[in-house]
Simulated assay, not measured.
Amino acid sequence: MDEGLRVCVIGDELVAGLGDARGLGWVGRVMARTSTEEPVFVSQLAVPRESTTALSARWETEAHRRFGAHSDNRLVIGLGSTDLDEGLSLARSRLNLANILDGAAASRVGCFVVGPPPRPDVDGDALAQLSHAFGDVCQRRHVPYVETHEPLRTHEQWHADVAAGDGVHPGQAGYGLLAWLVLHNGWHAWLGVPTDAV
């Protein structure tokens, strides 16, 4: 029996939409613009300020509890910049993401990765290198990767929205920008659903 589409979204507090007064975050906005014939079961599995090391250690247990034996299981990975806070090397960050993607592939779970957006309290060049490294890992595995740092690095609305909040996380406008980037970088094609007017 076909159990439909199940999507687990793992990552840090950005996956949970922290700072969004509407409580949607980018995940809720993306799903609101995703039309499917059957309802989609979406689980947001966020842990605040989580590094890729911690993420790689927990994703499988948490996601597989929500996947079905006869469902179309998908994994969305929302990456943040905590690796830089914790001093992880680029090699370690790359390996952590690679382990997640390879483990998912072994379980026939399709992956979609959203890179880390700019943070005013993090070195922009270091974050650009981290995002590039994540993108390279995805490219080598033919996994869709949404670059968010470069498009938003000098985006006035992004920075104004972050500054208007806690100075680290975006609000409604910022999450809208993240959702736009996801929707315009292969989301519908990855899910195999029609593209709405976005």
Rank of each mutant, 00 (worst) to 15 (best):
R92T: 12
L95D: 15
A106S: 13
N99L: 15
L45K: 00
S81R: 04
S43L: 10
S71Y: 13
P48R: 15
D102R: 01
S71I: 05
V109G: 01
L84N: 02
L101F: 01
V76S: 03
A46T: 03
V114R: 08
H70S: 09
H64D: 13
A104C: 12
A57H: 08
S89G: 09
R58L: 13
E86W: 05
H70W: 11
V76I: 10
L88I: 08
H64G: 03
R66L: 15
R58W: 15
N99V: 06
S93Y: 06
P48M: 04
S89D: 08
L45Q: 02
G110H: 09
S43G: 14
D102N: 03
E62M: 08
R92A: 14
A91M: 04
S51T: 06
A57K: 11
G110L: 10
V47D: 05
F67G: 09
R74Q: 12
L101A: 12
A91T: 09
I77D: 05
R108N: 14
D72I: 09
V109I: 11
V109C: 09
S43H: 11
G110A: 14
L95S: 14
F41L: 14
D83T: 03
R49I: 08
G68Y: 07
L75M: 01
A57F: 13
G80M: 14
L84P: 05
S93Q: 07
E60Y: 09
